[in-house]
Design a protein around this nucleic acid. Structure first.
Lengths: 343, 343
DNA sequence: AAAGTCCTAGACAACGTTGTCATTGCAAGA
DNA sequence: TCTTGCAATGACAACGTTGTCTAGGACTTT
């Protein structure tokens, strides 16, 4: 029950403090016999190193921060879970930091956070991660960070980054719809501030152009990443001059809203209208019918980001040239919400 | 830019380490003149005390854990924000810990968390906070904790707690509907495992009984706290033998689903059907029309809980008898989704 | 005037860990 | 046999902070 210290372990094992320390830190210069003996004692006493003491002594830390300004709770929770999973694997603890990218002194705020909580580094999620001014300023202050962004290629500079190739994935979704014979394909944007929206739109647009399908501005609606936004814009769309035969929502929440709207008009999916989403979130799985979407486990992405951050902070010998960039291409997942276009 | 320590402050101010320490900790035995001088230096050097050193020296900690197993991301994010706000006020840091109450060794897991991360205490959110076995076991191990639960009176025992009187609030919502002339009032449950569902149902039921309105089992449907569940059950309900004139959703998400379902049938709200929710979440504000609901800012509740936890951990002199229990009664918020019953 | 009390402030040790340097023992090379 | 080198271990200080104890001065009390 009582907390045991390295001192207790050393006393019981009959070795010095330093030897125990060496074993805890996997240093090589310990005789195997000694190591076994000490490990047994550690087990017996249920010893766990004290983080505060470690941090203090080493002036380093086993805590990282997760910075985000995304208003979508589903997104936030998934990112948290992913980073948290990686933290547990690596023995780090996590400090969450919701914030506002618009705030004037956001850079100061984050720098203070890092100092005050002795954070080893930051994982920065979109959309704030896509603000180069903020990211560069933090990097310039010597703060270790990794960012998750939407892009079709790795950004310049040497800031570690996980980039999600939304453009390629949206291209695949659009081609899937085109392959089913659809020509009037509507596109419902998410917030323009999120790069992901623009990237997904680019993928959609490129696919249409490649197949010589005119890009009809009347079928492209700006809006935001929400069920409600998808619902309302779909009603607008369906009352317009050319009804689309397919709707591509910038994410699953939008697509679920579109689905509800289409059903509320007495139409059926996919017989009358095909609907595709993006993200493979619970919305797409629970919808009736389930939505065609693109898999991009945000949790996995977040986990990757955390691993990358740690790799960047402690470059292992021999890993010198390891890429600090990781590309993720979401995969198309076909579900019943999309079907052949009817004449 | 460089981190400054208490030593730097002492040197620049021309006082001893201890004096600076006293000032940081608001100890009384410092001359005011000295205090001002040192505070100026602290400001100038942008000094911030090092948590690791503090924790180590005092064998105490300025970190708390937030434990939750609620699957609803909206709920989770709000609770996090509330606790985080209180943490910032009090100078604590927060360690989030999503978990699974069903897990066999959940108590061990939490106890390890507290030891390993040197947590000063835990804030436990529902529904895991409503599991007495878990809470009692943690308390028995001497772990400081506070729990957020749904109840109509304070629970026995001396475990600090914020209890939300959902029963009283649901009673008020039901009376509001009854006052508008409604008699056929449907009730859509959330998960039965959440005490809040049962409490809200009890409030609803009591109100009906007090007004001599028969409780019609055909109008009471079990389900869960989700838009989808509200949507589907409402369709079922409206196809049934006695259509209700009002629907009381166990939370706003359910009510929003009910609203969408009713609208999808071509009916209008509140002319044809009145709809009320619970929680005053974004769902109730963004709905068209906005939903009558009961205000219970989860964020505030969470903040209160954190304050209570800290009060319990450091009993101030004179506060000896301070209640470690806090009742919160959500207030009725009337919005356009409820109107007079039509004959 | 001496003794006691209060207020303010400093010296020092300690929290648990790890980096630096020193020490021991033993095998290989001269 | 006597270095030389290397592997294994230990002694000690230091990280930044605060608890305990003590000291000096001003003020009150007898």
């Amino acid at each position: 029950m009582v907390k045991s210290t390295i001192k207790d372990v050393a006393r019981v094992a009959g070795v010095s403090l330093k030897t125990v320390s060496r074993i805890i830190n996997n240093e090589p210069t310990v005789r195997d016999e000694t190591r076994q003996k000490v490990l047994a004692v550690i087990e017996e006493l249920n010893y766990q190193p004290d983080m505060s003491a470690r941090n203090l002594r080493g002036n380093k830390s086993y805590a990282v921060g997760l910075v985000y300004d995304n208003p979508n709770p589903y997104y936030v929770v998934e990112v948290q879970q992913g980073v948290l999973a990686a933290c547990r694997e690596l023995g780090y603890s996590l400090q969450i930091h919701p914030c506002n990218a618009e705030s004037a002194n956001i850079v100061e705020e984050l720098a203070d956070l890092v100092r005050h909580s002795r954070l080893a580094g930051l994982v920065i999620a979109p959309p704030i991660s896509e603000d180069d001014a903020i990211v560069d300023a933090l990097h310039a202050r010597g703060i270790h960070l990794v960012r998750i962004i939407s892009a079709d290629k790795a950004p310049k500079g040497d800031i570690p980054c996980v980039f999600i190739n939304d453009r390629a994935a949206a291209h695949a979704v659009a081609e899937h719809l085109i392959g089913l014979g659809h020509r009037g394909i509507a596109f419902l944007w998410g917030q323009e501030e999120h790069h992901s929206s623009g990237e997904r739109f680019a993928g959609y647009r490129n696919a249409l152009l490649e197949h010589d399908i005119p890009v009809d501005d009347g079928l492209i609606l700006k809006g935001e990443y929400s069920f409600d936004s998808g619902f309302r814009r779909t009603l607008t769309l369906m009352e317009g001059p050319h009804r689309p035969s397919a709707i591509f929502g910038c994410n699953d929440e939008i697509a679920a809203g579109a689905l509800a709207a289409v059903k509320s008009m007495g139409l059926s999916v996919p017989a009358d209208v095909s609907i595709a989403g993006f993200e493979n979130s619970p919305f797409s799985k629970q919808a009736q019918p389930p939505l065609t979407t693109a898999a991009q486990s945000i949790g996995d992405v977040a986990r990757q980001a955390m691993l990358l951050l740690v790799a960047d902070m402690r470059p292992q010998a021999g890993q010198e040239g390891t890429a600090t960039v990781n590309e993720i291409i979401p995969e198309l997942i076909e579900r019943p919400s999309t079907g052949p276009a009817t004449a």
